[in-house]
């Protein structure tokens, strides 16, 4: 039972990281608006459910598409001017983050809205766990396995890996980097939106919720290292277990702190991340 809970925590963490991992891994852009992308996904899901859309449709389709659209606009208007200036992209996305918090607060007010989780819960022995949480875990496994296969075996994945490794080379082969970047940013945003949609029933949605995710996601992705998929998966596994176990023993706050602290220590020991050390060269 505890194992199931840990699995679900790992699944959540991995899900929250996916969008960030794509954008950071492909573009070396630290997207500080990541948390707000998740928040927007949550709002998209909640609002469309309230408007009568089927909940699965709202979470799995409406949320990612809405946020992908927002992501593409941000990429077009802002990020495009800043590629190659890492610090500036970080500052600009922080601006986007504040702007989105402000806009959603103005539009929806600073209160928590939510939707009920679909599926009930089931019991094993004396414990119960939401079936929905297991579904989330399965979805995030599917995302990571799918992403791995995509990058490893498809032409699109080849293009992506080539661009990740060497921009100029990719450009000289006729791959248009700005297109790749726009698509990447869009996909990353969509994944964040998906995460927001799926988590909305569990955590509720509030304009300031993003903050809680961005630091956690970041540190997990960085701890993962250069290989975005394998790295993020392993570090989610590691950090997710650490934080859940600590939460069991103490409180959720200490659990979060344990995650951040242990990640910082990992980074101290392995400055290039887990995959900088161990699974070199995997996508």
């Amino acid at each position: 039972m505890v194992l199931l809970q840990i699995a679900s925590a790992i699944g959540n963490l991995a899900l929250v990281c996916a969008g960030l991992a794509v954008i950071f891994g492909m573009m070396r852009v630290i997207n500080l608006a990541h948390g707000e992308f998740i928040m927007l996904g949550g709002f998209a899901a909640v609002l469309s459910v309230h408007a009568g859309v089927n909940i699965w449709l709202a979470m799995l389709v409406v949320a990612p598409l809405t946020v992908a659209a927002v992501g593409l606009i941000v990429e077009r208007l802002i990020m495009r001017r800043l590629y190659g200036r890492m610090v500036d992209t970080m500052l600009a996305t922080w601006g986007v983050s504040l702007l989105l918090i402000g806009l959603t607060t103005t539009l929806f007010g600073n209160r928590v809205v939510g939707i009920a989780a679909p599926l009930g819960s089931f019991r094993i022995g004396g414990y119960s766990i939401g079936a929905y949480e297991l579904v989330i875990t399965l979805i995030s496994i599917a995302i990571f396995v799918g992403g791995y296969l995509l990058l490893r075996w498809t032409p699109l994945g080849l293009v992506a890996r080539a661009t990740m490794q060497n921009r100029e080379m990719a450009a000289s082969l006729g791959i248009e980097p700005s297109r790749v970047y726009a698509v990447t940013f869009g996909i990353g945003a969509a994944l964040s939106g998906l995460a927001g949609g799926l988590l909305a029933p569990l955590s509720g949605v509030v304009p300031t919720m993003g903050v809680a995710y961005v630091a956690k996601a970041f540190i997990t992705v960085i701890t993962g290292g250069a290989s975005i998929i394998v790295g993020t998966a392993t570090s989610s596994l590691l950090l997710g277990s650490i934080s859940t176990l600590t939460t069991f023993l103490t409180t959720p706050v200490v659990g979060d702190v344990a995650l951040l602290v242990s990640a910082t220590i990992f980074l101290r020991l392995m400055p290039t991340g887990i995959t900088g050390r161990i699974f070199r060269g995997a996508p």
Partner: peptide, 21 residues
Amino acid sequence: GWIDPNIVLGALLIAFVVFVP
């Protein structure tokens, strides 16, 4: 009151990074 200060902060930050770095 009607405009959230975060909007102002965010817009300023973006504008400066992009136009007056």
